[in-house]
Design a protein around this nucleic acid. Structure first.
Lengths: 212, 212
DNA sequence: TAGATTGTTAATCGATTAACAATC
DNA sequence: TAGATTGTTAATCGATTAACAATC
């Protein structure tokens, strides 16, 4: 079943924002919203919003707008948030622990089954109620529990070898926090959070602020 | 002093990647690189790389390529990494601590002077050798120490009010980890790390993987 | 010099915005 | 029905790629 038309990443990256604002509206018990109103909230143009949504279907009603709850749940479905995933985190340091405790994991349907680390000081401990295991057991654990998502919070040097093990063991999505561009096959999805690139960008903006 | 031509954000966000790869080459003691070789490393086209760099000046030599060390230091300068900034983190939870310990801060020239939190359990403790102070003292601390960069790792609900205090106290750059689109004046630079949007994007990619 | 590779202009491609007919 | 707002096509804008003269 092929997508009729490939949706661009520019569009995809706006969807979570729509979803978030619609969730806010839902909490406020607001029933309907127009593309114009959504434009004011998100800062995207109304035209762009309508274009974006129409990549996935006609969710609105002419002359009326969009039903908040309907659009919210449609977007949730499009983003795959309803579908549960089994996940693990490799690298149980500060960042790994922070991500493990991050509420957004469950919101995205991620079920965290284990941490992995190579430090003997960490192995055997638990964070929340999730155990830290020896990274040597990574491959067997992934296969045994049919893990789908791997989260990498290791130092940069280890990231590629961890990714290799993940891929070889059958994972098909990686959320990568290491400062590396991981090489993986096309059928494995990678989403990077490159903190250094983000921080350097801020530095650039500040450096060039006075010249604008 | 106005920039002759505004550099697009698409270009700016590629600069840190160039910088990183050039740093790697530098460590390997490689002296020169062509746009073609850099293309193979980064995945950007050689043409794009030359276009990008030429926004800032002609750093290459025709027939030869680019000097690795020269280009690296030029990019560092463009990114403002040489210039030191005084920074603070508001929200000393898991994520705040992880960011506080993140080595990239000093690499970007950020000097972390204090954490702030509202929890009495946290106030007075130190992370590394950086103290956690009462968030009530935020404004006075910023003014007193002439803080330039604020890092927000609070829950979403508090983020905007923290940003307001930061702005009012004279900060001109915010690195924001909260799931909110902060409203600040134009002269204050914001760089967001929206973990939920990143994770939702991964979820989308995985959900739609089978249909490609 | 001949070969290589930049800097830069022109061509293409894709994404955003504008416009408006369809229709609720 | 009249007013509002979508869905969608067309126009514009900006970013990427291709091409090539300049030159080391």
């Amino acid at each position: 079943m092929k997508k009729s038309k490939k949706v661009s990443m520019a569009v995809v990256r706006r969807l979570p924002k729509y979803y978030r604002y619609l969730g806010d509206l839902l909490k406020k018990d607001i029933k309907k919203i127009s593309s114009k109103q959504l434009s004011q909230l998100t800062g995207f143009t109304a035209s762009q919003i309508r274009q974006d949504l129409n990549n996935f279907g006609g969710f609105g009603q002419q002359g009326y707008g969009y039903s908040v709850s309907d659009l919210h749940s449609q977007l949730g479905k499009i983003l795959g948030l309803n579908r549960p995933y089994r996940a693990i985190i490799v690298g149980a340091g500060n960042l790994g622990q922070a991500i493990g405790n991050y509420g957004g994991l469950s919101e995205a349907g991620l079920n965290l089954l284990s941490f992995f680390d190579k430090s003997s000081k960490m192995i055997g401990l638990s964070i929340g109620d999730v155990e830290i295991r020896n990274v040597k057991a990574l491959s067997s654990f992934i296969k045994e529990h049919d893990i789908e998502v791997g989260i990498i919070t290791t130092p940069t040097e280890s990231a590629q070898s961890v990714a290799d093990i993940m891929v070889e063991s059958g994972i098909n999505g990686i959320w990568n926090f290491a400062e590396a561009d991981l090489k993986v096959p096309d059928n494995v999805m990678i989403e990077n959070v490159h903190l250094n690139e983000s921080l350097f960008t801020l530095s650039y903006l500040m450096e060039n602020l006075s010249e604008e």
